[in-house]
Amino acid sequence: MNPKDKITIEEVKKIAQLAHINVDDMEAEKYAKQIGDILAYVEKLKEVDTEGYEFKSQTDLINVFREDIPEPSLEQKEVVKNRQKKSKGGSLVIKSVL
């Protein structure tokens, strides 16, 4: 593995923070190595000669659109069903985020 691709513990913690996952120092060390290995593996793809191949997306489809026609949505009681105790007048209630 190329040393410049090495993932630091700080980087793991930063990614964990962005993903809202708690990671302690030991885990961070473990993940740093694992993520580094994955990246090194992906790095191998660069060895493939892509000369003469066109860029391809996840699918051959292009321009998949919908016409602008509204259709019925879920019913409000469906939406709040799993959170009935924590809804008010149809709004979902969470701890204040202000």
């Binding site: 919908r66 026609i69 509204p70 259709e71 949505s73 019913e75 409000q76 709040v80 149809g90 709004s91």
Partner: peptide, 20 residues
């Protein structure tokens, strides 16, 4: 628009009951 950007829900949400 009449409907939302990526689904067919009615885009006219003004003064509608929440989560409808």
């Amino acid at each position: 628009t009449k409907s939302k950007m990526f689904c067919s829900c009615d885009a006219n949400y003004f003064n509608t009951p929440p989560n409808t």
